[in-house]
């Protein structure tokens, strides 16, 4: 188990390095001179040269990268071109709302998706299964922004039950978290169903029935735990989808999170912020998948004990 943990932790290092390299090169690969951008539209060539020297842009690329890496590790992420706040500060403000939003979305979509998937698997071929799978297909195909707008129209505008947007009380979480999680829940439901149906055909499920285990335990103890093994892997991958979805949903619900910050930064070409956000998203994704791998070992003794 400790071997496994160390192996996984060590395995994340090259991934993070590759991401940081990509993010670093991102600015250099794009057309346009970052120094000119920082110096502003009215800068003279001397100003630009001064900024370039100040930013270290005249040094070799390798040196620049190492310096960037060093600063990043110390959370010195530069200043926003637009607001002149430090990027660390800016992201710090926006971090919690997005974290909470994605966590709520994740929790409901995993629980809901797995539950619907199991129901479908148990009742396969019957109307419950067909209904659930129609819902799941709709959930996958519905664009998030449109679902968000529909929900706002129904629950906020017509019924007046929930706020249209913002980040205040628990009510303001309901619609964004629901919208964000829908796609993931739908994928989870379909995937859980197929994993469940596959496990149902396994010999050990037959063994369980052969020793007279009640159907309820056959489902929850013998089938589901094994079906969860592939589902857990999927959960980690779906988290990336949530991060991407957050950008859309935060815009629709005027949510003061990282997603909207990213959208704003892109339209202002606020490179330091964009760089930091991409790095952060990648880091979160790697971290979540690390947690998923550990969960995997908890469910699957073969990983844990080998």
């Amino acid at each position: 188990m400790i071997d496994y943990l160390i192996r996984r932790l060590v395995g994340t290092i090259p991934v993070l390095l590759a991401v940081s390299l990509f993010v670093f090169l991102f600015v250099h690969l794009l057309p346009g001179d970052p120094a000119r951008l920082v110096a502003g539209p009215d800068a003279t060539p001397q100003d630009i040269a001064a900024v370039r020297a100040d930013m270290g842009l005249d040094r070799p690329l390798v040196v620049q990268y190492l310096r960037y890496l060093g600063q990043t590790v110390q959370f010195q992420l530069g200043r926003s071109i637009k607001t002149h706040q430090t990027v660390a500060e800016l992201i710090g403000e926006r971090f919690m709302p997005t974290l909470l939003l994605t966590v709520f979305a994740m929790v409901w979509s995993v629980i809901g998706g797995v539950a619907v998937g199991v129901l479908s698997g148990v009742k396969r071929g019957r109307w419950q299964d067909q209904l659930a799978m129609v819902l799941a297909i709709s959930g996958i195909s519905f664009p998030g922004f449109w679902l968000g707008l529909l929900l706002i129209d129904l629950f906020s505008v017509r019924l007046g039950w929930l706020p249209t947007g913002g980040y205040e009380s628990w009510q303001s979480f309901v619609l964004p978290a629901f919208t964000l999680g829908t796609g993931v829940a739908a994928v989870m439901a379909r995937f859980t169903r197929s994993a469940f149906v596959e496990i149902t055909a396994e010999d050990y499920v037959r063994t369980a029935r052969a020793k007279g285990v009640p159907e309820r335990l056959v489902v929850w103890k013998h089938t589901l735990r094994n079906a969860l093994i592939p589902v857990i892997t999927l959960t980690g991958l779906q988290f990336g989808f949530l991060l991407g979805g957050a950008i859309v949903v935060e815009t629709v619900f005027a949510w003061p999170g990282l997603g909207r910050l990213l959208v704003d930064s892109v339209s202002y070409r606020d490179y330091p912020v964009i760089q930091a956000e991409i790095l952060l998203f990648s880091f979160e994704f790697v971290l979540i998948n690390l947690i998923v791998d550990l969960l995997y070992a908890v469910v699957n003794p073969e990983i844990r004990l080998r």
């Binding site: 010999d203 050990y204 063994t207 020793k211 007279g212 159907e215 699957n300 073969e302």
Partner: peptide
């Protein structure tokens, strides 16, 4: 089915071909 379930185990039992796949891997 419920009556059969109560028979399986105390009255009749089965042993299958593949001992690996016939045992639950996570228990």
């Amino acid at each position: 089915q419920e009556a059969m379930r109560q028979l399986r185990g105390p009255e009749m039992a089965m042993v299958f071909q593949e001992p690996m796949s016939s045992l639950n891997p996570v228990l």
